[in-house]
């Protein structure tokens, strides 16, 4: 059995998590889809003082000799879920960043060529080559 004070502290922690997460979503700092797991964590923390006797029962019936072990197990599984979701997101984000970076770099090179040819109109005229880029200068110089 948990003493009243720790229970109250856990409840406060849960409320704090909920408030912070809700506020972050409200300010659009945290996206809804990432907030859901954290909100769930907040709700579980908030309600856990009420359910702790129940949890103790459950833990004993599942063969846990030390009930908090079940709590910790659940917490670890929850955190694993959250980090896994983050890893997935990170992989996808990196793929997107790579694509954008490449696109940006190629476009910027194009733009610099256009700027250059705008300054020297002669360079802009299509020549007998397949390319009118200065990179062909490489072979002329």
């Amino acid at each position: 059995m948990m003493a009243p004070l720790p229970r109250f502290l856990v409840f406060l922690l849960g409320v704090a998590v909920l408030l912070v997460v809700i506020n972050l979503v409200r300010r659009r700092t945290l996206q809804e889809r990432y907030a859901i797991l954290w909100l769930l964590a907040g709700v579980v923390l908030t309600l856990s003082p009420v359910f702790i006797p129940l949890l103790d029962h459950l833990a004993f019936s599942m063969g846990f000799e030390y009930p908090p072990a079940l709590l910790l197990l659940l917490a670890v599984v929850g955190l694993l879920l959250i980090t896994f979701q983050l890893s997935l997101t990170l992989s996808r984000s990196e793929e997107r960043i790579k694509l954008l970076t490449q696109e940006l770099a190629i476009l910027r090179q194009q733009m610099e060529l256009l700027k250059l040819s705008a300054r020297q109109p002669s360079a802009a005229k299509p020549t007998e080559r397949t390319h009118d880029e200065p990179d062909t200068d490489f072979n002329n110089t």
């Binding site: 970076t101 490449q102 770099a105 190629i106 090179q109 110089t141």
Partner: peptide, 11 residues
């Protein structure tokens, strides 16, 4: 004299 494509971040 080479064409240069600069990636804004290290890929």
């Amino acid at each position: 004299g080479a064409a240069v494509v600069t990636l804004p971040v290290n890929l």
